[in-house]
Nucleic acid binder design. Sequence first.
DNA 1: AACTCGGGGAC
DNA 2: GTCCCAGAGTT
Length: 374
Amino acid sequence: MKETASKHVENFPIHSFQRALIDWFKTEGRDLPWRKDRDPYKVWVSEVMLQQTRVDTVIPYFHNFLERFPTIDDLASADEQTLLKAWEGLGYYSRVKNLHAAVKEVKSRYGGVVPKDKEAFSQLKGVGPYTTGAVLSIAYGLPLPAVDGNVMRVLSRIFLIEEDISKGRTKKLFEEIAQRIVSVDDPSSFNQGLMELGALICKPTNPACLLCPVKDFCIAYERGREKDLPVKTKGKKGKTIQMTAAVLQSTDGAKVLLRKRPSKGLLADLWEFPGEEQTGGDFTNMLTEYEQTLLKKHQITANLTEPLCHVEHVFSHLTWKINAFVGVVDRIMKETAELKMVAIDEIEHYPLPVPHQKIWKQYVLRRETEESDG
DNA sequence: AACTCGGGGAC
DNA sequence: GTCCCAGAGTT
């Protein structure tokens, strides 16, 4: 039996619901940085940053990013290294690369004006169904659905929809429903109101139904089933990778070796202290395996001198357990664009993955301690 | 349809 | 530990 939007929306008091939701959003909605004006560029940046990322995490990045790249022109002419540095720690780094490519296209093809047309905007890199609806409704007032995780949770409860929200088909159902109930008069407040409701009231666990402005419209609340929703299958847990990595110093200690990660895949184009997966067992073999691998891959003769720290980092789909060392590079056959010695005080200009930031912090701490001890 | 792609906060 | 967050691209 295929669920249809019509079946759920039929007899739903759309206008009363819209009024209750919008009124609540206008009085109780948070005063967030990207809500100060309707500049399509700022709205767009905020929506990209907010993909799979919490509001509190985004706020400082948003301020910094807009200070460095206030306009589409500024962003279009920035270099990727600078962009990645501004995105460092925010995760999902392809977001900023896609945004970069997209604003370049806006500049060249649309004269620097974010296109108001749904088809045109949604074809830009990194702009999917959610971002299309969010940006165009908030910045231009177009009555489009903007369905994210929050909205699926809210709507699953209001309409008592027990379909698995991790399925693509279910997301389409929610988009159809949202399209039918979105306010034509104020789609911006409506869409932001649904998301704000999900963030503040209709939370994943322990929803604050008594404070909810639309509880009278909510079938799950009426039947006491809000905690059963949404239905979502859990994904499989990721694997663990044991790694060896090292801060490899020049013999005079003025520089350390950095390696640029491949341009596709995990943490693409970020820099790291060379790390290798550790396949073998004991301590001695771990050091030997690492040194052999660097020699083979980069013609580098490295010598690990002392252990530095252990770093465990959990990604969405895998875990790194890094044994970090300090070492010395005896000889480099060739420095390349992806492998080079970098002065100590220049490291801060390179975008590093968070686990490698932790390694660097430990290394700096170690050096300072050694200096003060003589 | 299933995977990949970060990091952190709430519980 | 688990969940999941203002998701999109790739296969």
